[in-house]
Design a protein around this nucleic acid. Structure first.
Lengths: 199, 199
DNA sequence: GTTTCATTTCAGAAATTTCTGAAATCCTAG
DNA sequence: CTAGGATTTCAGAAATTTCTGAAATGAAAC
């Protein structure tokens, strides 16, 4: 691996972290390299810089495409594929979270719903526990879907506010007693066990 | 594995998902079993129900304790260790997110800061990219730390509001033109590259 | 102290995942 | 169609992770 020290450290770190992020070392390093590169890179350039086998790089790029984390580019008079990461970091983060949700959360949510439907009446405790878990995940993913629809600028605004948002809400509640802000409705649900047990 | 069908499916699912969640099958299954069990279980009971070796269960429980995901209990006249998961689901979610942040985010944030300090002046693009990434992570983790300080009830309130929070903010801004709600300050920062590029 | 259970450690076996080189496939240009 | 180059596939090798049984450690009861 022949890279400037900064790049080298960054790439190696992403390789190590890869395993914790559900991708492997190769994929992490390829992504890191692309992330730092202003110009799109082709597979052979990646091979040169990271020293993996050609086929391994090919696999890695394929996986990054499956994650939708890289963009394909082409140069005039050159039919090789060139790859980049999106310039906009928010686009990257959104993709990352979407993909992880799809892989790590959605299957479980489906399974929980399925279990609840097919469930007999045995073991009320386990059933309640599963129901509560499902409701919690629904609350969280519902909130996420909602946030995900916001424009980036609005999103940054909210994130910067942090918990100070509380003040805005309570201020609003006293000044303008609207219907939202207090825990209520959420249309219909089985209500078998409330996810928001205040403890 | 001798379990009621509901339990069995749930446990197997958590085992499969385990690998996507950065834990292994054994650990996932043990956790799932404890999650569904009203009564605390000891290691031998887990061995009986899941059919792993005694030592594997011991390792798994140790890992769950390292993640702080199980609680240790004792029964009178019985010196074996019994394990449960917290009754309060929010406590579980908070622990889970905390731990994943600690393992998956914090090391990278440290590394990015370190790279920025030690960085020479070569490759301005890569430097800017790293700085931008660091700022983005700081924004997100800062927001998270903030939210994490809220009581559960407040948290649920905010989550239920979802993006309708926008309305509250804009309403507040027009009615009571406060200082927050508009993007500003965040005390001091290097400002080398703004994380909130609107686009 | 000794006995008796419960738990942990650890080296190697088993299983899984990652990586490679060679061959196959797939363009596009001519 | 054929040639030339780029990319992908795939079977096996290499590396890593998980799992086990046996031995070691620990800790309460006597």
């Amino acid at each position: 691996m022949k890279l400037p020290p900064l790049h080298q450290e960054f790439v190696l770190h992403f390789g190590e972290m890869g395993s914790r992020w559900g991708i492997n070392r190769t994929v992490g390093q390829i992504y890191a390299l692309l992330f730092l590169s202003e110009e799109p890179l082709n597979a052979d350039q990646i091979v040169d810089q990271l020293g993996f086998s050609r086929s391994n790089v090919s696999m890695g790029l394929k996986e990054l495409q499956a994650w939708n984390l890289v963009r394909l580019r082409h140069k005039p008079d050159d039919r090789r594929d060139y790859f980049t990461t999106p310039e906009d970091l928010w686009e990257i983060v959104r993709t990352l979270v979407d993909q992880r949700k799809k892989r790590e959360i959605d299957p479980t949510l489906s399974k929980l719903r399925e279990l609840q439907l097919g469930g007999g009446d045995a073991d009320p405790y386990a059933q309640a526990r599963i129901s509560e878990l499902r409701q919690m995940i629904e609350l969280l993913t519902g909130w996420y879907d909602d946030m995900n629809r916001l424009e980036t600028e609005r999103l940054v605004q909210l994130l910067s506010l942090g918990s100070r948002i509380q003040k805005v809400i309570s201020a609003t509640e006293t000044v303008v007693p609207l219907g939202f802000g207090t825990r209520k409705k959420k249309s219909s649900d089985d209500g078998s066990n409330t996810a928001g047990g205040s403890k």
